[in-house]
Simulated assay, not measured.
Amino acid sequence: MKSIRKSTALFEPFAMGTIPLTNRFVMAPMTRSRANEKGAVPNDLMAAYYEQRASAGLIITEATQISKQGMGYARTPGIFTKAQIEGWKKITQKVHAQGSKIFLQLWHVGRVSSAQVNGLQPIAPSPIIAKDTNVYIFDGAPNGDATFIPVEQPKAMTTDDIQQVIQEFKYGAKNAIEAGFDGVEIHGANGYLIDQFLRSNTNHRNDQYGGSKENRLRFLIEVTQAVVKAIGAEKTGIRLSPFIKFKDMDDPEIMDTIMLAASALNDIEVAYLHLCEADWDDAPNIPIAFREALRQRFKHTIIATGNKTPQTGNDLIQQNLVDLIGFGRAFISNPDFPERVKVGARMNQITDTHTLFGGGGAKGYTDYPKLP
Rank of each mutant, 00 (worst) to 15 (best):
Q65V: 11
G70S: 03
N203H: 08
Y192D: 04
G39N: 14
A130I: 10
N134Q: 14
I238D: 00
A15C: 09
R340V: 06
Y49D: 01
Q116L: 14
E185C: 10
V117E: 06
I186L: 09
Q93C: 06
G358Q: 09
I254A: 05
I149G: 03
R291Y: 08
G328Q: 14
P287S: 06
G87T: 06
I59T: 06
V228A: 04
L10C: 04
I128L: 14
K131A: 15
K38P: 00
A293R: 14
G39P: 04
E62K: 12
S200Y: 07
L260F: 05
I186C: 03
P310W: 04
V343F: 07
G119N: 07
V26Q: 07
I244M: 13
Y192I: 01
R5M: 12
P338E: 05
A146F: 10
A40K: 14
Y192C: 03
K82N: 11
E168K: 09
G110L: 01
L120I: 13
G140K: 11
G232S: 05
T202M: 11
A9L: 09
G70D: 02
M347H: 12
P29D: 08
K247F: 15
L58K: 09
I303N: 02
N134H: 15
A264F: 02
S3F: 02
K38E: 13
L324P: 00
I194Q: 00
V270A: 04
L265G: 05
M30P: 00
Y209F: 14
S200D: 10
G144H: 09
F331P: 00
D182K: 10
S33V: 11
A15R: 15
K299E: 09
L265N: 08
A179W: 08
T353C: 00
G17E: 11
S200Q: 13
I123S: 03
F219D: 01
D367E: 13
L120D: 03
G232Y: 09
F148D: 11
D160F: 09
P372L: 11
K299V: 00
A264T: 03
P20W: 14
T22L: 13
T61L: 03
V135G: 00
R205D: 06
Q208K: 14
R199T: 02
Q65T: 13
I254T: 04
G172I: 04
Y192F: 15
G359S: 15
E12P: 08
R239W: 04
S67Y: 11
N118G: 07
G180E: 09
T158N: 10
P150L: 08
N43C: 03
I231N: 02
A330D: 15
P13A: 02
I59P: 04
I221V: 15
D267P: 02
T158S: 15
Q196R: 07
K245D: 12
S114H: 07
E214V: 08
G232R: 06
Y365L: 08
G188D: 08
V270M: 04
H354E: 06
N285C: 03
L198G: 00
M347Q: 11
N134I: 04
K90I: 00
F219N: 01
S3P: 02
R53V: 02
Q167K: 15
A35H: 06
V270N: 02
M27A: 02
A261I: 10
G119W: 13
I325P: 03
I79D: 00
N348L: 06
V343A: 02
G211C: 11
P150M: 10
A233P: 10
W107S: 01
G99E: 05
V227T: 09
Q319L: 13
G172M: 07
G39F: 12
